[in-house]
């Protein structure tokens, strides 16, 4: 049976300020969805809310995987249900080797009922798998011995996210601006990596305001977000249109949300949006 990630009428506040105002979206395994929208429209808020960032408070609505509600689950439990977020700003964990971290993560994800302290997956098996995956993604195996994201370039960080995605094999992957801040070569590497990984077992939600990632991973659905709501849904051609023409037509078609966007930009909500992005990158 095909599983689905279902978001219904989701309202989210950050430090008391409402950011999302009723988002509904369903991603099934095997589908690729694009989520686009101008800065501050709430795309990253949706990503952090999905993954379970404690700062993002769901005030109304629900998130479900396969009918199981996620609202009350922490990030770890959500990951074990098969949800993955490729972070826009991957976090540095000093002193923790990529391989040690991944071995631990994979053990937990593959054996969700594992108790703390039980054994990890065998080292040899793990190393072999990691090496094969790094080869496939064109990554130097030296990466495995480096400390997680410490001293990584922007492109290296994004590739590390893709490697984690590849190793953890989630049922649902959310990619938050995985293509931003990268040169075109790096975008190609990341995009090709994702194309290799996605398939009938994975539902993908790509958050972007470019469409380069989408050239390699053509979405069946494109959603446009404005001022905390999904205002339009179309196919791949909508993504192309937005890329070529920007959001002015969307704003004209949705004057109420455009007015809210302008109000946020002029003051009250813009601050909350900024805190939505971690200061330590």
């Amino acid at each position: 049976m095909v599983a689905s990630l279902k978001i219904q009428d989701l309202h989210v506040s950050v430090e008391g300020l409402p950011i999302l105002r009723g988002v509904s979206l369903e991603v099934r395994q095997g589908e690729i969805h694009a989520l686009m929208g101008p800065n501050g429209s709430g795309k990253s808020t949706l990503a952090y809310t999905l993954v379970g960032h404690p700062k993002y408070e769901i005030t109304q609505g629900s998130i479900e995987i396969d009918g199981k509600p996620l609202n009350e689950l922490d990030a770890c439990e959500r990951a074990r249900l098969g949800l993955f977020l490729a972070f826009q700003y991957p976090i540095v964990i000093p002193g923790v080797k990529v391989a040690d971290f991944l071995r631990h993560a994979i053990t937990n994800i593959r054996n969700p009922d594992r108790k703390e302290g039980e054994g990890l997956i065998p080292m040899r098996e793990f190393r072999k798998e990691l090496k094969a995956m790094m080869d496939e993604l064109g990554m130097d195996s030296e990466f495995a011995r480096r400390y997680l994201n410490e001293g990584f370039s922007g492109g290296e960080k994004k590739r590390m996210e893709i490697l984690q995605l590849a190793m953890l094999k989630p049922r649902f992957a959310v990619l938050d601006e995985t293509d931003s801040g990268l040169d075109s070569d790096a975008v190609r590497v990341v995009s090709e990596g994702l194309r290799k990984l996605s398939g009938p077992q994975m539902g993908v939600l790509i958050i972007t305001h470019h469409e380069r990632l989408l050239e390699y991973n053509v979405p069946q659905f494109t959603h446009v977000m404005l001022a905390g709501k999904i205002v339009e849904t179309g196919d791949a051609s909508l993504a192309r249109e937005l890329h070529n023409e920007g959001y002015s037509k969307v704003r004209l078609r949705h004057p109420e949300e455009a007015a809210e966007e302008a109000a946020r930009a002029s003051g009250r909500s813009s601050e909350a949006n900024r805190t939505a992005e971690p200061a330590s990158v």
Binding site: H53, A75, C76, I91, N108, I109, L168
Partner: peptide, 11 residues
């Protein structure tokens, strides 16, 4: 959050 989102418990 980052580590937990990869399936590690808080502890």
């Amino acid at each position: 959050l980052y580590l937990m989102s990869r399936g590690l418990t808080e502890a």
